[in-house]
Amino acid sequence: MKDYFYTISKGGEGFYKEKGSKFIGLAFRVHNEDEVKEKLEEVKKQFHDARHHCYAYFLSKDKLRANDDGEPNHSAGDPILGQIKSKNLTQVLVVVVRYFGGTKLGVSGLINAYKTAAFESLEASKLLKVTIEAIYEIQYGYEITNEVMKLIADFAADIKNQEFTENCNAILGIKQSLQEKFEEEASKIDGLKFDINNALHDD
């Protein structure tokens, strides 16, 4: 189980021209399918006079899609998705807009054009490493502070917030792969209460 994945923090733009047809690649970071729809609508408004708005996105292994938008089957969306996968990127949408130049390129020509425009847009994007953490809220009495601090140190926990009132309260980020072991060890400390809220943390 990996504790991180790569995405983009700032999307880039790519360009490819073949026999009069222009292909503009646009890369975006998206967190869910609603954001995918929003970005697609924005692109279609901006390039409303284009012939095709082909795209692919990869949110997770179970949430990915490629769309040819009227081009021959598998000639546009799949090559775009292939570029996202080849760079091992997650939470990424790439749209390639085509302005038809009057000459047909054939399936192999289209595959190369969409692949190249997608590649250029990702090359121009700024990469971001995202740590996958389990977020815990913990509460404990002052008398077990030493035990809790040792636990935090042992798991290299990221202390996101701390409050000292009648009891001690803290919010911790634990690497995903250590989650089960952390809960096991935390349960051994009498008087330590913990609740979990999963989250992602951008480095």
Rank of each mutant, 00 (worst) to 15 (best):
Y4C: 04
F5A: 05
F5M: 03
Y6M: 14
Y6L: 12
Y6A: 01
S9L: 07
G11E: 08
G12N: 06
Y16Q: 06
Y16V: 04
G20T: 07
S21W: 05
F23T: 14
I24Q: 04
G25M: 03
L26Q: 06
A27P: 05
A27Y: 06
A27D: 08
A27C: 02
V30D: 00
V30R: 06
N32M: 05
E33C: 03
E35T: 04
K37D: 13
L40N: 10
E41H: 00
V43T: 14
F47Q: 12
H48R: 15
H48K: 13
H48A: 15
D49R: 14
A56C: 11
S60F: 11
S60K: 05
D62T: 14
K63R: 13
R65F: 15
A66E: 15
D69R: 10
D69E: 12
G70S: 09
H74S: 10
A76Y: 08
G77F: 06
P79L: 13
I80R: 00
L81C: 08
Q83D: 09
I84N: 08
K85Q: 15
S86W: 11
L89A: 13
T90Y: 10
Q91S: 09
V92I: 09
L93G: 06
L93S: 14
V94R: 03
V96H: 14
R98Y: 07
G101F: 08
T103Y: 10
K104L: 15
G106S: 07
V107H: 01
V107E: 09
S108R: 13
G109I: 08
L110E: 05
A113R: 09
A113E: 03
S121Y: 11
S121G: 06
S121N: 10
E123V: 14
A124H: 03
A124F: 01
A124E: 10
S125P: 07
K126H: 06
K126T: 15
L128K: 08
I132Y: 00
E133H: 07
A134Q: 13
I135Q: 12
Y136V: 00
Y136W: 08
Y136C: 00
I138W: 07
L151K: 04
A153C: 03
A153H: 14
D154S: 13
A156R: 15
A156C: 04
A157D: 04
I159F: 08
N161W: 12
E163K: 14
F164G: 02
N167K: 14
C168T: 01
L172I: 01
L172R: 03
G173V: 01
I174G: 03
I174S: 00
K175D: 09
L178F: 10
K181S: 09
F182M: 01
E183K: 13
E184I: 07
E185M: 08
A186D: 03
I189W: 05
I189E: 02
D190P: 09
L192Q: 06
K193P: 00
K193S: 09
I196D: 02
I196F: 06
N197W: 01
N197K: 15
A199T: 14
L200G: 02
L200P: 00
D202F: 08
D203V: 13
D203G: 10
D203R: 01
